[in-house]
């Protein structure tokens, strides 16, 4: 790929243009490095001071979140737990459905049906996250509220959330990761060599056995990549769930009104100031940490696939 074209006469006009072009492209390429570098630097520079001012224990391992009280407390334990729990549940609900849909598209569905469903899945992936939030608020919340009323009828201790709770947020997230996981795992399944399938069938295995014993294991790296990307999307989503999840800081239970790392930033950044604002950056730093872990895992998978 790398065609060498060297300058012969060094003061030639063409030569100057060539050198300049190469220099400009190199600078362009380093914009990405510069961007990631400065984002990391800024997140650390803005997020760390609060950690030391308040104390790591009081911020990361305390559950009381009273940022605007007379004596403010900034424990983000429940917020962190909510993000982890919400992402895990969304992945547990969304991934199986997405995987089976991918199997259906790649192995079972007739070509004409795939031709209809695939663009539809891509459309689902392109819908802005706020639209999902709007739908969650208008459709899902009333449904979940009905369920909640039935479940906790007569309960005196339960704080009713009106449907804006962890469960609703998890369902919205599950729907949102669906298209990502479907399309990536579908291409992974399609990339499995057809000899594997035909030999398995020739040995007497049924189609279903072939799918689950041969094709899916062979497509495993691609499927894992799809799941990791889904996790990344779920943990970083803010706007879709900020109104759907309620917004009180509570222990993450399905019918509790909760606050995620992302929604804490979105809903409080508008009015926060001083130490409160710094703590929001600490929350951003925690989120950034999670995302970097996800990215490193992804990078490892990609490198392994290259080999």
């Amino acid at each position: 790929m790398n065609v060498k074209a060297k300058c012969i006469i060094s003061k030639d006009r063409v030569c100057i243009v060539e050198t300049a072009a190469q220099a400009i492209f190199t600078i362009c390429a380093f914009v990405a490095i510069f961007a990631v570098g400065s984002i990391t630097l800024y997140m650390i520079a803005n997020g760390v001071p609060a950690l030391f001012k308040i104390g790591i224990r009081d911020i990361l391992f305390s559950a009381t979140w009273k940022p605007t009280a007379q004596e403010p407390e900034f424990g983000i334990l429940y917020i962190v737990l909510t993000s982890i729990m919400g992402t895990a549940l969304a992945v547990m609900i969304g991934v199986p459905i997405a995987l089976l849909t991918a199997v259906f598209l790649a192995e079972i569905a007739p070509k004409t049906l795939t031709a209809v469903i695939k663009p539809a899945v891509e459309l689902l992936a392109g819908i802005p996250s706020v639209v999902y939030g709007l739908l969650g608020l208008m459709v899902l919340n009333p449904l979940v509220y009905k369920w909640e009323q039935n479940l906790y009828r007569g309960s005196e201790t339960h704080q009713f959330t009106g449907g804006a709770n962890l469960l609703s947020a998890v369902l919205v997230l599950a729907v949102m990761i669906l298209p990502t996981v479907v399309s990536i795992s579908e291409s992974a399944i399609r990339a499995v060599p057809s000899e594997l399938k035909t030999s398995s069938m020739a040995l007497g295995a049924s189609h279903v056995q072939t799918i689950f014993r041969v094709i899916l294991p062979a497509a495993k790296p691609g499927i894992i990549m799809a799941i990791v990307l889904g996790v990344g999307r779920a943990i970083g989503e803010a706007m879709a769930i900020s109104l759907v999840s309620g917004g009180c800081v509570n222990f993450p239970m399905p019918f509790h009104s909760v606050r995620f790392l992302t929604t804490a930033i979105v809903s409080e950044m508008g009015y926060a100031s001083g130490l409160h604002r710094q703590v929001l950056f600490t929350i951003g730093l925690v989120l950034f940490g999670f995302i970097m872990i996800v990215n490193l895992i992804l990078n490892n998978i990609l490198i392994r696939e290259d080999r």
């Binding site: 400065s38 997140m43 990307l229 970083g236 803010a238 930033i265 951003g284 950034f288 990215n295």
Partner: peptide, 10 residues
């Protein structure tokens, strides 16, 4: 892979 909230903060 960086979520848009982080881009917003940055």
């Amino acid at each position: 892979g960086i979520p848009s909230v982080i881009f917003g903060l940055f």
